[in-house]
């Protein structure tokens, strides 16, 4: 517990959270979840969040070697669970597997659930939810006044091991993660079954892959060998995308996964956790 910078228990009023935080929008901001469900309800909004103070970090894959600034934010201390997602679909029937619009989730969406509101047989309610699309994850997050973490936010937290905020230079850091990644069927374990990292965040590597808000912002293909796009006409202001840390095989794997995803994909070992800004913007 002493490592926690700050733990925020979130009992935020939905009223506060649904306010727009964009000022220059030509169109009024509308909550994503509102698109589907009218008033979105979720009874379990009390997942503890870890305060991440942010800072500068060197992205594993970036436009160049320059540092990226990560603003302070709050991150769920663990992934969203089966039980929580069950509550969500009970309150939001549009996201039940027989109702979900195909454009928002492929046919494997919650395919293993016994019914619209019954978890898979033998499933642990405290294991992370998988087989959900990016659209679904985003709708869930918005239903409780949160959002998905950005890729940079997620990777910033992923630099930590148990004792330091940035363990990338330790040789055992990547090896340990790869050991975890190579285990099959990890996603059936309950959340928080292993110790937290420096920030008090659990299960960054040992259960599932996780959606990030801007997973589609990686312009390399799954083929990392090309390193960079020489042909600038292919991409506006296209640029170098070579890896800055070639030995970080674990990061390579995450990027390979993200570049292979589409937003409607649902995958057996892909889930998510939520994040939130530290500052809540009110309507002017």
């Amino acid at each position: 517990m002493k490592h926690f910078g700050f733990i925020a228990a979130v009992w935020m009023s939905i009223g506060l959270m649904s306010c727009s935080n964009q000022e220059n929008n030509p169109v009024e901001e509308k909550s994503f979840a509102d698109h589907f469900s009218g008033t979105v309800q979720n009874t379990r909004v009390n997942t503890a969040m870890a305060y991440i103070p942010g800072g500068e970090y060197k992205p594993f894959y970036g436009s160049d070697t320059s540092l990226v600034k990560v603003e302070p934010f709050l991150l769920d201390e663990r992934p969203v669970t089966n039980g929580e997602y069950l509550d969500f679909v009970k309150s939001n029937p549009a996201w039940q597997k027989s109702n979900v619009k195909r454009i928002f989730a492929d046919t494997a969406y919650l395919h293993n659930w016994s019914s619209d509101t019954t978890l898979p047989e033998g499933a642990n309610a405290d294991a992370p939810i998988c087989n959900i699309s990016w659209f679904a994850a985003k709708a869930y997050a918005e239903s409780i006044g949160k959002r998905l973490p950005t890729l940079d936010e997620w990777e910033f937290v992923a630099m930590a091991d148990a004792t330091s905020p940035n363990a990338r230079s330790k040789s055992e850091y990547s090896d340990r993660i790869i050991d975890l990644y190579l285990q099959k069927n990890r996603q059936f374990n309950p959340v928080k079954h292993s110790p937290p990292n420096y920030w008090g965040v659990y299960n960054m590597f040992d259960l599932i892959w996780e959606w990030t808000d801007d997973f589609n912002s990686i312009l390399t293909t799954g083929d990392s060998r090309s390193g960079q796009y020489e042909d600038k006409s292919l991409f506006c202001a296209g640029g170098a995308t070579s890896a800055t840390d070639i030995l970080n095989y674990a990061a390579f794997m995450r990027f390979a996964l993200r570049t292979s995803l589409k937003a409607d994909f649902t995958v057996a070992n892909l889930g998510f956790r939520c994040a939130r800004d530290t500052v809540v913007h009110l309507n002017k």
């Binding site: 990016w134 659209f135 985003k138 589609n216 312009l219």
Partner: peptide
Amino acid sequence: QEFANVLSMKYK
């Protein structure tokens, strides 16, 4: 972003 994702379009 949502629309780009519907098109499987990557941007940054």
